[in-house]
Amino acid sequence: MSDATLPRFRAATEEAPLLRAALIGIAVAGLTVLVFAPLIVVFAEALKDGWLVAVQSLGNRDARSAIHLTLLITAIAVPANAAFGIAAAWFITKFDFRGKAFLITLIDLPFSVSPVVAGLCIVLLFGANSVLGGWLVAHGWPIVFAIPGIVLATIFVTFPFVARELIPVMIEQGRAEEEAALTLGASGWRTFRTVTLPNIRWALLYGTLLCTARAMGEFGAVAVVSGKIRGQTATMPITIEMLYNEYLSVAAFSMAALLTALALVTLLLKTLLEVTHADQLAAIRRH
């Protein structure tokens, strides 16, 4: 390399200017096509005939029922998964036992299994034709094609979010503070409440927000177990699909816009959290 012709040295990790421009171009194009454009389209389609029509389409009985149902499912699935996630992360990080690696893999299972397959498994296990399902139906507790099935499907699909956020944080923090609390006379529960929980609170909130966004939007598994009964087991995503298939485009996109807005709110909260508590969250992002 003839250094006389080079005006300045490039850092080892710095790309050539042309390549850099190309990479930035690809990134911007990708974001526009894949993220911004769909977002804009959703809201534009919803508001095509004006605010009033869009809002009215959300006001009918079936639409209101879908919104209620999605909020109800989320309100059950998210706290349940927060509790399961804390329990799983606690168990994995604070105790030594055989098969730990296997259990960690198991926690990730819902991420790798297709939601549709998960839904089918629930139908097989709890459907009216199965032993368990038959018994439950006979006793007035239908699971499949009813709300409990949707809750189960949603819990399964969104299970990993909280646990995956907590495990790296709890591994990094170790057991020393908990042990200190115990030697100072605190009970196990008090130790959990006053030492463990405050130490993981930001990771917990972060995982819960991700879980919420996903729980509201879950389609595949819910589609299989819900039976898509309008006004009863049709959640927001299911309703959107049904409306769209019936060429009720404004109604479909109005509901889609509402679902998107709910997701955006959780994303906004998540971003706010990242800005204000960057240091506590740093441990999470290392995984």
Binding site: A176, E177, E179, A180, A181, T183, V195, P198, N199
Partner: peptide, 13 residues
């Protein structure tokens, strides 16, 4: 037992 840990294990919060 008054236990002092190697890394002190003070409650960070």
């Amino acid at each position: 037992a008054g236990f002092v840990f190697q890394s002190y294990a003070l409650f960070r919060h």
